[in-house]
Amino acid sequence: MTAPVFRFAPSPNGELHLGHALSALTNQSMAASSGGRLLLRIEDIDVTRCSPEYETGIFRDLAWLGFGWEEPVRRQSEHFGDYEAALERLKKDELVYPAFMSRGDIRAVIVEHEAKGKSWPRDPDGAPLYPGTDKTLSQRERQRRIDAGVPFAWRLDTTAAVERLGHQLAWREWSSEAMTAAADIAAEPAQWGDVIIARKEIPTSYHLSVVVDDALQGISHVVRGKDLYFATSVQRLLQEALGLPAPSYFHHRLVPGPDGRKLSKSQRDTGLAALRDAGETPETIRAMLGL
């Protein structure tokens, strides 16, 4: 029987914090208990925010925690060709379209809609769904705008992708780290609307690159925080549309900050490097996390 394959996939756009430590150590524990392999992937498609300094910090912090991984490490920025190939397949199957609406355009549509006393649908993260009014543009008009240099992003035609499937999507969710029981969870990609799949300046997105990477690396078990639970619906749709295998999932608890919110790089929550400098040890970090 093939050994399970797990992965920890941080982005080098800030310092690792306790939430990352929990995810890394949970992956490590589950891989060890199941006799599986453990990979490290650097998710650095956002080349404007990611930096070599933060990547070096990731390696340093993980080594200090006692987290071991297989070499070589996959860096997404070195594999844009893989994502472009997947995007081309979606284009060929007419499951994506160039979306030209700016943030201002989107806001204007929503304001006009809500002025009539109607609420605008929002995704699980609270962001308004894309209006999609340019989805019906002719191929000629689309090409005219692209040739004229009008900014655009490739968006998934979620309705078309779901209809093309013809069956209910689901994913396998483990109920605990012990992986003794699992349930099939119904995927609901429609709740996300037409998500961005690629941008002009970056030929991919988180959703597209993560499903391609998981398939190419043979990831069998995706272990990550509950903040990505609902995103699984979009990723399952992309896996089906691209003919990729579906891993099983375990979405672990989140680590709250002092004020109860989820830890965040952008909010400069206490990082592992700062905790180490303050005298904490890998053992006390584990104790803080209840491990």
Rank of each mutant, 00 (worst) to 15 (best):
residue 233 S to T: 06
residue 277 D to R: 15
residue 291 L to D: 11
residue 274 A to H: 11
residue 254 L to V: 09
residue 71 E to W: 10
residue 168 Q to A: 15
residue 239 Q to L: 02
residue 153 A to T: 11
residue 251 H to N: 09
residue 148 A to K: 00
residue 289 L to F: 09
residue 71 E to H: 14
residue 39 L to F: 02
residue 130 Y to A: 00
residue 3 A to V: 07
residue 26 T to R: 15
residue 229 Y to C: 08
residue 105 D to A: 02
residue 255 V to M: 01
residue 261 R to F: 02
residue 248 S to Y: 00
residue 101 M to E: 05
residue 157 D to V: 03
residue 84 E to K: 12
residue 177 E to Y: 08
residue 58 I to N: 13
residue 7 R to K: 01
residue 250 F to P: 10
residue 269 D to R: 09
residue 241 A to K: 01
residue 93 D to F: 03
residue 271 G to A: 12
residue 197 I to A: 00
residue 115 A to P: 04
residue 127 A to C: 04
residue 12 P to I: 08
residue 129 L to K: 03
residue 72 P to M: 05
residue 164 R to V: 03
residue 45 I to R: 10
residue 33 S to C: 10
residue 269 D to Q: 12
residue 13 N to Q: 06
residue 178 A to P: 06
residue 51 S to C: 12
residue 173 E to T: 09
residue 164 R to N: 03
residue 148 A to D: 00
residue 183 A to Q: 15
residue 61 D to K: 05
residue 78 E to H: 13
residue 84 E to S: 11
residue 184 D to V: 03
residue 47 V to G: 04
residue 155 R to G: 08
residue 267 Q to T: 03
residue 160 A to T: 10
residue 198 A to M: 02
residue 227 D to L: 05
residue 70 E to A: 14
residue 204 T to A: 04
residue 156 L to N: 08
residue 91 K to C: 10
residue 62 L to P: 12
residue 49 R to S: 10
residue 70 E to G: 11
residue 116 K to M: 02
residue 87 L to T: 00
residue 97 Y to D: 05
residue 207 H to G: 06
residue 65 L to Y: 10
residue 40 L to V: 10
residue 76 Q to T: 08
residue 163 E to I: 05
residue 30 M to R: 15
residue 124 P to M: 08
residue 182 A to Q: 10
residue 229 Y to D: 09
residue 4 P to G: 03
residue 182 A to G: 03
residue 264 S to G: 10
residue 252 H to T: 04
residue 167 H to Q: 13
residue 14 G to I: 08
residue 70 E to M: 13
residue 106 I to G: 05
residue 92 K to L: 11
residue 169 L to Q: 13
